[in-house]
Amino acid sequence: PREAYIVTIEKGKPGQTVTWYQLRADHPKPDSLISEHPTAQEAMDAKKRYED
Rank of each mutant, 00 (worst) to 15 (best):
P1R: 14
P1W: 11
P1H: 14
P1G: 14
P1E: 11
P1L: 14
P1C: 08
R2G: 12
R2Y: 14
R2D: 07
R2E: 07
R2I: 14
R2M: 12
R2Q: 09
E3V: 15
E3C: 07
E3I: 13
E3P: 09
E3W: 14
A4D: 00
A4S: 09
A4I: 11
A4R: 02
Y5R: 12
Y5G: 01
Y5K: 07
I6T: 02
I6F: 02
V7K: 08
V7R: 09
V7F: 05
V7T: 12
V7E: 04
T8P: 14
T8D: 04
T8F: 06
T8Q: 11
I9Q: 04
I9N: 03
I9H: 05
I9V: 14
I9C: 06
I9P: 01
E10P: 05
E10I: 13
E10M: 09
E10G: 05
K11W: 06
K11F: 07
G12V: 06
G12W: 05
G12I: 05
K13E: 15
K13M: 14
K13C: 07
K13V: 14
K13R: 11
P14R: 09
P14N: 10
P14M: 08
P14K: 12
P14Y: 12
G15S: 06
G15Y: 06
G15I: 03
Q16I: 07
Q16R: 09
Q16P: 09
T17E: 09
T17H: 09
T17I: 09
T17Y: 11
T17W: 11
T17C: 06
T17S: 11
V18F: 06
V18L: 09
V18M: 11
V18I: 12
T19Q: 06
T19V: 12
T19A: 06
W20G: 03
W20I: 11
W20V: 10
W20F: 08
Y21T: 00
Q22D: 01
Q22G: 02
Q22V: 04
L23R: 00
L23H: 00
L23S: 00
R24S: 02
R24A: 02
R24F: 12
R24N: 02
R24V: 08
A25T: 15
A25R: 09
A25Q: 05
A25F: 04
D26R: 12
D26P: 11
D26M: 11
D26H: 13
D26Q: 08
D26S: 13
H27T: 10
H27A: 07
P28Y: 08
P28F: 07
P28N: 07
P28R: 07
K29D: 10
K29Q: 12
K29Y: 14
P30H: 10
P30V: 10
P30Q: 09
D31T: 05
D31V: 05
D31I: 03
D31H: 13
D31Q: 11
S32F: 14
S32K: 11
S32A: 08
S32Y: 14
S32G: 06
S32N: 08
L33M: 07
L33Y: 06
I34S: 00
I34W: 03
I34M: 04
I34H: 02
I34L: 09
I34D: 00
S35C: 01
S35Q: 01
E36S: 05
H37F: 08
H37W: 15
H37N: 00
P38W: 07
P38R: 13
P38L: 13
P38Q: 13
T39K: 03
T39S: 11
T39P: 00
T39W: 03
T39D: 06
T39R: 04
T39L: 04
A40E: 15
A40F: 15
Q41I: 12
Q41P: 06
Q41R: 10
Q41G: 09
E42S: 09
E42Q: 10
A43N: 00
A43H: 00
A43V: 06
A43I: 02
M44D: 09
M44L: 14
M44N: 10
M44S: 08
D45E: 15
D45C: 07
D45A: 11
D45G: 06
A46N: 03
A46T: 02
A46P: 00
A46I: 01
A46E: 05
K47V: 03
K47R: 07
K47C: 03
K48E: 10
R49T: 09
R49Y: 12
R49P: 02
Y50F: 11
Y50P: 00
Y50G: 02
E51T: 08
E51D: 12
E51W: 05
E51L: 08
E51A: 05
D52R: 11
